[in-house]
Structures are given as structure tokens and as C-alpha cells.
Write a protein that binds this DNA or RNA. Structure first.
Lengths: 250, 250
DNA sequence: CCCATTTTTTAGTTTAGGCTAAACTTATAG
DNA sequence: CTATAAGTTTAGCCTAAACTAAAAAATGGG
């Protein structure tokens, strides 16, 4: 009786029962995985995501993923077809963007307000993103001046969940030798990789030149130093080219 | 096998396996309840705490409390004797103080850095206290200048978990009519009560005069206004008297 | 000092989100 | 067009932390 009443109230107010931390994380990773591995860094979940990819990302067994996907499908947050993968629904997409907004705002705040290194903010934000109120979100967004990107160069969805326009970027691994540009995004969540990038000075905004691609990786120049960047890392480094003509694509 | 090895490692490093949010909350409330209802506001858990009191505070059934207390006793965090109540062990006391430090530092930070009203900070801190790292704790403590009290006037345990010295305070409900002093602590976690105190201007530091005690509550003066404060609220308002002689207690 | 009331415990469920092992699909290679 | 590999799902089990119902213990008033 009571529960029916509350359910009706939620329906009337168009509210969702609160999602668990795990559920939010799954939705976020479906969005991120669905947008990965393509030539653009836009966050659109065109692609369908596999159970296995999700299992690896969540550090969980595939069987556990199946269980969770069924639950999320019942909640109307994903479209799930057995053996074929998942994709976010409208509602699920909104939740994922909300979580991402929290995550990236927190990263920006930790960096700018509390002096965290840009490579340190991810893991702290990972824990906090599920536990802040809308009031907290609003206050740090305001303190930061409603930033469009976080310290890794990732776009921050606006309060209305639109994604800001980003400059055209390409993965370092796909550039022509001789190209020069600035780091736009460091698109990894792996702490060791982040530490390495930070150590090499490869943070968003840094100027970098691609010397050549070799079998062992890509040779690059950063300031006066030259490095050999393994392909796995050159994959996740997005560069905004300097000398390109953006004015007249026609 | 593996688990034995890890257990041994933890023992060697004198580490505890991480506690759940619920476990931390129980320990915190044992500390708070054990220090309540006495003439002092020092945080010492001399008293033993009943299952029932804990159940009310945690919004949970007594049976659930019993279950949790048994678990905490196994972990060596409380001394628990059936039918007689609980008390924190050394180790449990330390955990409780750590959680309290997190909570109160967060409250202070929300108030001073992000402009939250002092009556708004409790519930946000309640969620965040379990999810911040030691690095975060250290950074906000430093930003704040290592404060000794939070916006409600509650003492903040230091990094080494010592409690700062507080001025001698007494509950409003126990003062003699005619006394004047300043609000030292607003010792409630109830949001409605906090809102009311805030509305009346009864925040830490505010000057207040006790006019008289009546059956319906205590008549007070705050600035130019006079109010009748129900006994339940006069209970939780701690006053630092102005005209008392603290210099020579002998 | 006994009985009624209150408090606490016991025993058995529930829900969320993991796990393993086995079974089943889909894709791929002959 | 099968046979096998790779990927996925099912079934069954586990733990944490809540719950309920009922039994047992403690307490306090007459």
C-alpha cells in the first residue's frame, strides 16, 4: 500500500528511484565504451557494447555483467539483447551524462581549488561522483565558472547535459610524421599511464611534435626532450593540430 | 591460501581491512551516544550504549543492531556483552574519531569554502565522510588552517586524533535565569531543529540571554527578539557563559 | 518478590551484487 | 557444412546488512 503510493508519487513527479553506485557505474561505462575506439572524441553511444568489454572495465566477471544488464534493462535504462550487447536508452544516457558531469566537475575542482595534480584527480573523483548532492554540483560548477573541460581535457556536460563543442582532435597514433600540435585530451583512466604522461609533461595544452611512427611506438618531441611513446599510450593521446586550416573545410 | 597470506600482510602492516560505511556509522554513533546526556561536552565514551538507543539513532531495527554489534565485536572494535550494551575498544574509538574528523572537517569546508549555510552542511557531510581519501582530508584541513571546531561548534579531532580544548560550556536548559553568554555548540543532527536555530539567529558565537525557565520551555533573548525555546531544543544548545570566572577555579 | 512491560536476542527472510561451473550461442575455419 | 573456439548466459551459491516474528531475558512497580 505505502509502496504503491510512493511509486505513484514518483511517477507523477517523473522521478526515478535512486540508482545504486554500481548501476551508475555500469551506465557510465556503457557510454564511455560505446564512444571509444572511433576517430572522433564525441560522446555518442552509437555502438553496442559487449558483455566482456564491460566486464573488463568494471573488473568483474562476465556473468555478473549479464545480471546487472538485465536489471538495468528492466529499469528502462538500457536496451539489452542477449548475446548481442547493450546500448543506452534516452533515460540511461541522461543518467550516464549526469554521472560524467559529476566526475569531471569534481576533477576540475580538485585540481583548481585544492591543488591536486591533474594526474591524481581521477581516482578521488571516482569515489566522490556518486555521493555529492545537486547543491554541491552547482556550487563547485559556479566556483569554477562553469568550465567546459576537465584537467584531462575531457568535455564536461553542462547542467542541461549538453556537451560543449570541442576543437577537432586526432589521436597521436594517427598523425602524419612532422605534425605539431597541442595535447587536447589524455584519454586513459589507468593510473600508471597518467603518472607517466604527467612525468613527461604531456598534459593538456602541452606542445608536442610527432617525429615518426616506429614498430615499438611513436617518437615524439616535447620541449627539448624526445621520447618513444608505446602505441598503447599514443592511442589515448589526442592532439589538436596547429597548422591545420579550420576556417574553410569546403 | 591467498586470503591467509593477505591477512598476514595486514597484520604485519598493522592495517585493518576497510570497514563498510555502515560499520563506520555504528562506531561513530556509539561514540556520540556514549558522550551524550552528561553535563560536559567532552567526547569520552565512559558510558555503555544500549541496542535500543543505537537502533533509534541509526533508523534501524534493534535486531539489526545486535547483528552488527556482534560483527564489530569480532573485529575487536567494540566490547559487547549481550543485554548490557556496548562500548568502544581503543581501536574502535580511533575509527570513530577518524570518521568524526572527516565529518567535521567537511562541514567546515563546505561552510567556509563553498558558502553553505552552517545549518545545511550536516547532511552533505554525512554522505561524504566515508568516501574521501586521506589526501583530501589533509588538503581541506590545510586550506582551513587546521580548525579546532566545525560550524556547529563541535570539536574537530586533530590529525593525531586528539580533541582540542574547549571553553567550559553548559546546556541552556541548565542555566540560571538572568545568565548571559554566547552559543558554543548547537548539538543536534535534526534538520528541522537546525533550520529553526538558524532562523532565530542561534548560531555559534551568537549572544543569548536566558530570561526564565517555564513549563513550555525556556524564554530567551537574542538581540532584540525574545523567543520561547522548547526544552528539547534548550537541551542541545550549549552556552559559554560570559561573566564566569574561569581563571581561578580553586 | 513476582508479574507486566520493555528490551534484547534468535531464527529465518530479503535484496544487491558479486562468484563459479556448466550450458548454450555465435562466429570462424576447414 | 560441420567442428571448434570464443563469448555469453544460466543456475546455484555466497556475503553484507537490512527486515519480521517470536522467544527469552532484564527491569521496575506494587
Amino acid at each position: 500500500m505505502g509502496s504503491l503510493k510512493y511509486a505513484a508519487d514518483r511517477l507523477a513527479a517523473n522521478q526515478r528511484p535512486p540508482l545504486s553506485e554500481a548501476q551508475e557505474d555500469y551506465l557510465k561505462q556503457v557510454l564511455l565504451l560505446g564512444s571509444e575506439g572511433r576517430g572522433t572524441d564525441r560522446l555518442e553511444d552509437t555502438t553496442t557494447v559487449s558483455t566482456q568489454a564491460l566486464a573488463e572495465r568494471m573488473q568483474v566477471r562476465p556473468a555478473s555483467v549479464t545480471g546487472m544488464l538485465k536489471k538495468l534493462a528492466e529499469l528502462g535504462l538500457v536496451e539489452y539483447e542477449a548475446y548481442r550487447g547493450v546500448r543506452l536508452t534516452q533515460a540511461g544516457h541522461r543518467v550516464a551524462l549526469e554521472v560524467l558531469r559529476h566526475h569531471r566537475l569534481i576533477e576540475a575542482y580538485l585540481h583548481q581549488a585544492l591543488g591536486y595534480g591533474w594526474e591524481e584527480v581521477h581516482s578521488e573523483a571516482e569515489k566522490l561522483e556518486h555521493h555529492i548532492s545537486e547543491a554541491f554540483e552547482a556550487r563547485i560548477a559556479q566556483w569554477l565558472g562553469h568550465p567546459s573541460h576537465d584537467p584531462h581535457g575531457d568535455a564536461i556536460p553542462s547542467a542541461t547535459l549538453e556537451l560543449p563543442q570541442s576543437l577537432p582532435n586526432r589521436r597521436l597514433v594517427g598523425l602524419e610524421p612532422g605534425s605539431t600540435g597541442r595535447v587536447a585530451r589524455v584519454a586513459t583512466q589507468d593510473q600508471d599511464s597518467l603518472n607517466l604522461f604527467a612525468h613527461l609533461g604531456l598534459k593538456p595544452g602541452a606542445r608536442v611534435e610527432l617525429l615518426e611512427h616506429a614498430a615499438e611506438g611513436s617518437r615524439i618531441r616535447v620541449g627539448k626532450e624526445r621520447y618513444l611513446l608505446p602505441a598503447s599510450l599514443a592511442q589515448v593521446l589526442w592532439i589538436h593540430l596547429e597548422e591545420e586550416n579550420h576556417a574553410n573545410p569546403a
